[in-house]
Amino acid sequence: MSSSAPTAVHHVHRDDYGSRMGMWLFLFTELVLFGGLFIVYSVYRFTHQQEFHIAAQELNTTIGLINTIILLTSSMTAAMSITAMQKGNVRFAKGLVWVTIMFAFAFMVNKYFEWSAKIHHGIYPGSKELLNKPEGEILYFGLYYVMTGLHALHVIVGVVFFLFILRHIGQGKVHQTQYVRLENAALYWHLVDLIWIFLFPLFYLIH
């Protein structure tokens, strides 16, 4: 087949409602992705109740609590940035997005210290210390690393998403009457928050 003939201009169809719908559908896949992990978690917690309780003692509730507050607050600033954009206050909107990114950064720093403390204590996948523990605890920490790790990965993706939005704001692609991308980035960020809302009690609060 030859394609040497002229080029057609592909017309761009703007549909904010459709974009949001697509974003929501994408969020469902993310939810179910974590859902799979929650299924694994619930089954093992059901079959190894005692060991999960004991293992959970090792986690630092305070760090978990601080991270919860950080994420809730960042969720608020992300939501506010849309209001600012709707009101035409572009600089304030940008500022709020930056604040959100800073919170994400703080979350990651916290996470870093939390994980390093664990690893320092010899609790990491494949470590001798961990392998000597009962099966339920190995599973607990396996899930702990996988679930909080995957969540942290989503935090990073959220930040990248926001950085793109900031660029788009700078380029004028996102503005007072065209802000669906900002909305979608914020939706993604709220999803990250939502998942943490469940991770926090399930890992840190089962004493």
Partner: peptide, 22 residues
């Protein structure tokens, strides 16, 4: 339904490479 297989296969990958117990 697809995300479930995604995460399941990802878990096997993690299990094989990092020795995480799942």
């Amino acid at each position: 339904a697809t995300p479930i297989i995604g995460i399941t296969l990802a878990l096997v990958i993690i299990e094989r490479t990092l020795g995480v117990g799942i």
